[in-house]
Every structure is written in C-alpha cells, then in structure tokens.
Nucleic acid binder design. Sequence first.
DNA 1: CGAGTGACTTATATTTACACTGGTCACTCT
DNA 2: AGAGTGACCAGTGTAAATATAAGTCACTCG
Lengths: 206, 206
Amino acid sequence: MISSNAETEAGQRGPADHAIREQVVTAAKAHFIRYGYAKTTVSDLAEAIGISKAYIYKFFESKQAIGEVICGGALGAIDQGFAEVVASARTPTEKLRKGLETMVESSTKLFFSERKLYDIAAHSCLEKWRSSNDHWDRVLQRVSDIVSEGRKKGEFERKTALDETSRSIVQAMQPFINPLHLQHNLDLVPTQSNEVIRLILRSLAP
Amino acid sequence: MISSNAETEAGQRGPADHAIREQVVTAAKAHFIRYGYAKTTVSDLAEAIGISKAYIYKFFESKQAIGEVICGGALGAIDQGFAEVVASARTPTEKLRKGLETMVESSTKLFFSERKLYDIAAHSCLEKWRSSNDHWDRVLQRVSDIVSEGRKKGEFERKTALDETSRSIVQAMQPFINPLHLQHNLDLVPTQSNEVIRLILRSLAP
DNA sequence: CGAGTGACTTATATTTACACTGGTCACTCT
DNA sequence: AGAGTGACCAGTGTAAATATAAGTCACTCG
C-alpha cells in the first residue's frame, strides 16, 4: 500500500514493468531461500525461468541488484511489522515499546525460520547495500515520528534535538535489530533487549 | 595494584611464578603484536626463548591460554583507563560520561595503533574466552558502582533495579566498546557514541 | 527494430595435495 | 625426581591447479 511502485530501485535497467523482471524476482527469492545468495548462480535463475543468463542482465545491472530486491523485501517485512504495531498502539510510549519489541521479534524469527534470507540481510548491512540503507532510513523516520508525537502530547522530554534522540534510540537498539549484530546476541533476546527498550523509554521521560 | 597476583588464570598449569612463564608471555606479546595470533606458532615462541615447544606446555594448557593472557592485558588496559578517569571525575554523572567516552576512545585507539592485539580482543569476545568475560564483569561492576553512588547522592533515579540499569547501560554501549562490534561502527565514533552516552545519562535522570 | 542468445573474458570459488601446527608422551640427562 | 626434549599423530591451514561464475557483446531471428 505504501510502496505500490513508487520505488525507483537502483541497479535496475530496461523496462520497469515487465513479466521477466517479476519472474526473475520470484525465482530469485525461491532460490535464495533454498540455496542462499552465494550458492545461487544467475544461470540457475535463467534456467529456472527458461531464458538465457544474458537476458537477465537486460533487467538487472548485477547479481547484487537482484539480491537487493530480495533483501529489500525481507527488511521491508520487518519494517512493515513495525509500522503495523505502531499504528495499533495508543500512546507514543506504547508505540515505541511495542514497535521496538516487534522489530526484535521479527528479526529473530527471520533468523530461525528463514536463515538464508537473514544471511542476505546481514550481508546487506555489512556491505552497506542500498536495501539496508533504505531500511535504516525508514526505521529512523518511524522512530522520529513517534518521538515527535510523544513530545507534542507531553509524554516525552523536549530538550534534546529530535534527530539526535531518534538516532541514538536506533543506535542503542542496533545489537538487537541489526542482523549483523543480532546473530551475536541471540541469547540476550528478549530479556536484555527489553531492558534496553526500558532504558530508552526512561531517557524519554519529560 | 588491584591485581597483584590475585588472579588464578584458567588454562595455566605448572609453577605459578616462574621465569619461563614470564618469558613466554613477553615473547607472545611481541610476536602477537607483530605477526598476529594466528600466524604466531607455539614453536616460534619456544625458539625465541630458546626452549622446546613441549616445555611451554608445562606452563600453559594450550595456545589459547597464552592468547588469553595477552588479551587480558589489552582489555585490562582499557578497563584501567576507565577506572582512572572514573577516579578523577567528581560527580557520578561525570564519572559515567567521561568513563564511557574513555572506553570508546581507548578501544578505537587500540584498533588503529595495535590492530593485531585488537583482533585478538575481538576474537576473544566472539569466542567468549574467559579474558573477555572477565573484562565485561569488571566493566559491569564499575558501571554498577557509579550508578549506585549516583543514586545515593540523588543524582540518578532509583526506581529501576540496579542490575537491570547497569546491564542495559553496558548493553547499549556495546556497539562502541565491544571490539567485535566497534570495528563496524568506527565511522560513528565519536559523534554517535556520545549521543548514546547522552541518552544513557538522560535515562538516569531522577 | 527489438526480443533474445552463444560464446567469450576476467574474476572468483573450489578442489587437491601437501606442509605445518597444536598438543602429547615416552624418554634423557643432571 | 624433576627440568627439559625429540619424535610423533591427528587435525588444520595453504598454494597451486582447476573449475565455475559474473558480466559483456556482437550477433541472430522473427
């Protein structure tokens, strides 16, 4: 709903709305989930669709560009869950608390149920792909909106600069919401992550 | 001064105070700094000292045990800097702020000036060696002491459990004080690290 | 002309064969 | 008896050789 086809993805070329493009993405997702990003070759995808490898490169600049679309989907789902919980919560405090909890939860779930996709997400964060940068921009924006609303309602303090506050919240949560870091902290979820969330909420007290 | 010889290091054996043990440690530090942990062989150390490899194993259970001593020294130095700054600061707020700033600083410095030692420290954190566990215990204790003092003086809030507060402070700082994570966040130092420190201090407000 | 490809180049992975290292132990020498 | 070691084994790392993949391009065919 939010992103109908408004995104002009980088690393793409050729006709934007084309059956082949969709087929590549569909095949790529299936293959990446099953065999992982590294073990999937562009030829595999071409073969699965029934076209030549060269033709795929009429639609994507590189294998990474395909990976970014799939990764964008996975991170987008996490982002989506965050947004939904936020929408259904009443107060800004609850929005932030439940929103962050949900992000931790869905990231952890991704790790355990779709490990191969998780690995792509982690790789994306490590290599600072566009898909992860976009993700963090969205998360930061969402947090910023909540904090802003909380300030208006007098629930949160107003002294600190809004962008500093938002940045530091997202930063403090990195060990639990960044796939790159989360994998080293799985044993701390959810106890420690909830404690950090509580620390964040305390820091917002007026 | 704090740790004269009170530490009963794990992974050690044979006579505790022995010239050879010191020589091994000295040679190991020099070699690890120059060639790194992986590229230094136990035979190299033996040769440098002028004894046989087998004799080293009369004092250390494994190569890792030697690595832990060196790593313990590197992490201990960071810990030391933290303690010194804390001792010289007046208020708990200042202790915590400057203490955490210093930890970030000395960790970053270790990365740039003694990269090979830094790598051992990161490895230690990844593999959860005793040297890093001890380190985190000490850091947690120091933070806990400061928070406790701050509460007594009425500078910090008192509602949250002391151990939860301390744990979450250390946790929120992990991206900047844990060698394993810091190397992915070097571009965020010191701006973002200071912002997180400020968030932590806000969370402690009474 | 434009959808679609085989053949090619260069960089990256994988294999294979071997060398080396961590760690032990029976042993020597004093 | 205790300081100290050579020789050994099993597992790991390494380097060269080989195979495979990413990406391009001139080209075909309808």
